[in-house]
Design a protein around this nucleic acid. Sequence first.
DNA 1: CAGCATATGACATGTTTATGACAATTCCAC
DNA 2: GTGGAATTGTCATAAACATGTCATATGCTG
Lengths: 233, 233
Amino acid sequence: MTLTTDTTAPLVLIVDDEPAQLALLSYNLKAAGFRVATARDGEEALLAVAEQGPDVVLLDWMLPRLSGLEACRQIKASPQGREAAVIMVSARSEESDRIRGLDTGADDYIVKPYSVAELIARVRANLRRLRPVATGQALEIDDIRLDPDTYLVTRAGEALHLGPTEFRLLAAFMERPGKVWTREALLDRVWGREIYIDTRTVDVHVGRLRKILCSTGGTDPIRTVRGAGYAMG
Amino acid sequence: MTLTTDTTAPLVLIVDDEPAQLALLSYNLKAAGFRVATARDGEEALLAVAEQGPDVVLLDWMLPRLSGLEACRQIKASPQGREAAVIMVSARSEESDRIRGLDTGADDYIVKPYSVAELIARVRANLRRLRPVATGQALEIDDIRLDPDTYLVTRAGEALHLGPTEFRLLAAFMERPGKVWTREALLDRVWGREIYIDTRTVDVHVGRLRKILCSTGGTDPIRTVRGAGYAMG
DNA sequence: CAGCATATGACATGTTTATGACAATTCCAC
DNA sequence: GTGGAATTGTCATAAACATGTCATATGCTG
């Protein structure tokens, strides 16, 4: 297998205070092709969420300093956290029934003891909702179609030629139809988190993408939201 | 047809919790020319799928820890599993099971007791769909034709002379028309997993393949996808 | 109209890919 | 074995392409 460690591989943040558990999950998730970040308690988790913007957070229920429940609330209240899927992990003895009733904003729950395979399946399932491109599904908005497997983009059946950055940019837009992306968010998602680039550069690339998308005729599918950013669909 | 045991031979992952069954199938499949990997339960199976990317998975219905049914669902949801054919093996013969099995994305279904010959036939049949070259089917894209049995490649009727590496490379492209292969994936598929070669070497071989394919005139059938890899068709 | 946010064309730079040459190796017929 | 041809991986270099920035133009909002 080819492990994908590039910036397009989904990032999973594992939060657990047991080093052994952390190592086990980390190993298996990496083997499944994910990028992995770790945190040992709720506060570290919040920091990691803000800094790295994971796609999925695996959050242990019992944590020192800041409980999983509270960490979940705060993650979901943060800008980066709202975009992530939070999966709560708890032991069966810890009132699993009540967990479901609590309004923590968690996207999914998994109860110990669980199998690694089950966990990975849950991660994938939540990801499919969140990042369709990472799972190879073709995207479609109006007459525009993007296929991650073949890297083919068509509008009204006609093939378009995008550069790598334009392709990733369009993929981001199409993964979340209607969502307004700030320039900063797009830089994070399309360019990667470790990079320092002028936010105006986004304008240029959006312009290039527009030119290509409209090259066959048709209306501009990208909406400029003044003071905020861009959206599509 | 004689299947060889080199890296291009199809890999069959056998999942069964009975050691005797595992040994029996393993022996017979190896004798039939396949490479074989094994797993004893659903979780091991998922790991093996991710790590080894088998072409066919023989999945027993009854498994400890993670049922065959659930394992199948998860295999089909993973990137590597999407490319594999899953054959469910079951002792039950009820129609409902058959339907449920196929519903989870299984490609085929075989009921105990079965003959080894029947099983191998099923494996080959599913492989034919998935990896035509391994079963000796000729491939065709546009005016290019590749016959794995005779090692003959023609374009517009004219015979072309490819080296072994170029032949395997072309076969990989033609088995999945349109699919974009990363250089790493091609190294895995064409050169083998255990080999460490500079990824740029792929460029050189693609170049050589192109030169041969275009030697009789005609357009370049191989698409370069900047930042990603190559594709054909 | 002023002030600000966004759009766009041009360009230098950097990056990715293509190609020709070459040495090492393998293969094969003799 | 032996010689010669074919094949292979690497490298240096060239070509093609993509990218980030800037200067300037355009457009929106009040």
